[in-house]
Amino acid sequence: MTGIAGSGLHLTRDGADAAGRERDRDADAAPRTGGDVEQARACEHRHVELRIRRQDAPDSAPYWQRFRVHPRPGDNVVSVLRALRLDPVTVDGERVDPIAFEHNCMEEVCGACAMLIDGMPRPACSTLLEDLGDVIRLEPLPKFPVVRDLMVDRARIFHNLTRVQAWVRLDGPWDTHERAPRISQRQWVADYLYSRCMSCGICLAACPQFPASSRTNADDNRAFVGPSALAQVRLLNAHPLGRFNKTDRLHAIMAEGGLTDCGNAQNCVRVCPKEIPLTTAIGELGRQTTLQALKDLFG
């Protein structure tokens, strides 16, 4: 089957439809048009309870609230959170502040929406409700300081990219009129995978070696940089120009908080939604640093 989940597309043709749409929303999972009617009906009576760990401010105490939602077919965690903003009432009938959470792309490419869903770090936008149970626990992404509710501050991810010098040193962003160097398709395939990182921090949340914010500062230069930054070192070290600064990057990850802080737990590679081969990067960097150390010692 073609199974378009959530295909309840109904472009409004006139004002009456627009009003109808409003009513639909109010009545929650009212049947949709066309082929979706059956699907909508199947979901009509599905109630899902969201248990959300909330926190009003960085230094205030967390607490839990429960909400009942009626997901539409194809809904994901971001879309139900969005729907919940319209009417944030708990199961006890208490009207509360809308839940603060982050999202942008809603197609798993910006990395904004990462959170703990039923205890596992995942991008909320690509986590469909039909794959979850009837009680869903939502918590902020661990390891990062909570800003509010499900929003966290991931500045550390970007700071760590600075630490490992994740850039190519250009003379300037102008054209040098040099043709792009040749890169084999084989190398392209290997490199491209790393360039899909969306800085979501899910791998970091799962890495036992990546310290929680309670144990480090955002600009701590000795805490573990984490697998995502290491993968960028792997990527840039392979680039024809990036190679020129390979030694700098290797030295950066040979310092405290660098590559050797990885304990090979390999959760990172299992949870990364973009399936980035983080542990291959770690292995390859292991080799590069081994050789670099030999060079430093005896070269």
Binding site: P208, Q209, D261, G263, N264, A265, Q266, N267, V271
Partner: peptide, 24 residues
């Protein structure tokens, strides 16, 4: 010292390698 620098969660992440990390 190294053990002090990590926080294993063998139950949450039940992958083999992670369990081995904890076991180590």
């Amino acid at each position: 010292v190294i053990i002090g620098g990590g926080r294993a969660e063998p139950l949450r992440y039940s992958y083999l390698r992670n369990r081995l990390y904890w076991l180590q």
